[in-house]
């Protein structure tokens, strides 16, 4: 009997999870269908690029720089043991482009911009602003959700590229300026090892997928917020947690398809 109950609970949880997923997907489609306003009134989207992208610039650039510098120091330490310290640039560039750039940028983006989007929309819901909009015959999906979604989807890949660039620059500063490695070897080895389609393009594809995941989660959780102060805070937490987990899972799946057998 205990097992029967346990099974029933498990089944119920699974069904609820699937229903929730379906709900999110329907929301996604609804946002996509409401895109026209985000395009025809570009200013709305521009404003969201400002809040999601420009305001995340500092954290992205600074973290990128430090990640690159740390990676260079550690990489140099280990690679010099094998007499391969020339490959530090390759190590950093590959690590950043293939994994760390898109993933860490997306995690930071979820924490910085995703939570802000959820909190803003959630607060609008808690204070009846979304309902007021609806009562004024303006669809919040078109006026609030779509511009934020597209603002995030446009900002995130640029942020990921900036993150990788900052990291490579950080590695350059450490290995070439500080340790005194040869400038030509740093760039030359990097260029010989990094493939445009394989590494750079896949990096951009990953960051676009992550952008959709983070922004969709953030906008959805905002709209799904329970309209209380507690509801807003737990929705914000959910955005960061769910988006981060989804990013890592999606990264694993994409890595399998992109880099297997190479």
């Amino acid at each position: 009997m205990n097992i029967a109950n346990w099974l029933r609970a498990l089944g119920q949880t699974t069904i609820n999870a699937l229903a929730h997923l379906g709900f999110i997907f329907r929301f996604f489609i609804a946002v996509l269908l409401n895109t026209p306003m985000a395009v025809t009134r570009a200013r709305l989207t521009l404003r969201e690029i400002y809040f999601a992208g420009v305001l995340s610039l500092v954290i992205i650039l600074v973290s990128g720089l430090f990640v690159g510098m740390v990676l260079a120091l550690q990489g140099y330490d280990i690679l010099s043991t094998y007499g391969a310290s020339d490959s530090v640039g390759v190590l950093v560039a590959m690590a950043m482009l293939r994994e760390l750039g898109p993933v860490v940028a997306a995690l930071l983006f979820a924490g910085r911009a995703g939570s802000a989007i959820t909190a803003e929309i959630g607060l609008m819901k808690a204070t009846d602003q979304l309902l007021a909009m609806e009562m004024m015959a303006v669809d919040p999906l078109a006026r609030v959700a779509a511009p934020r979604f597209w603002g995030g989807v446009i900002s995130m890949p640029l942020l990921a590229a900036l993150f990788s660039t900052a990291a490579i620059f950080g590695a350059y500063v450490i290995t070439v300026q500080l340790i005194g490695m040869d400038d030509g070897a740093f760039w030359g080895n990097m260029q010989a090892a990094v493939d445009f389609r394989m590494d750079v393009l896949n990096s951009v594809i990953k960051s676009i997928v992550f952008a959709v995941i983070v922004t969709l989660t953030a906008v959805f959780e905002g709209f799904d917020t329970e309209p209380t102060a507690e509801g807003v805070s737990s929705a914000t937490t959910r955005t960061v947690v769910h988006a981060s987990l989804a990013i890592l899972a999606a990264d694993f799946i994409m890595t399998i398809f992109m880099f297997r057998g190479v």
Binding site: E120, L123, M124, T127, D128, Q129, L131, A132, E134, M135, M136, A137
Partner: peptide
């Protein structure tokens, strides 16, 4: 709804 005005309990002004 364009022919309908709705005043919410606390106004529901857009805070941004």
């Amino acid at each position: 709804r364009r022919r309908l005005g709705f005043l919410f309990q606390f106004g529901a002004l857009f805070t941004d």
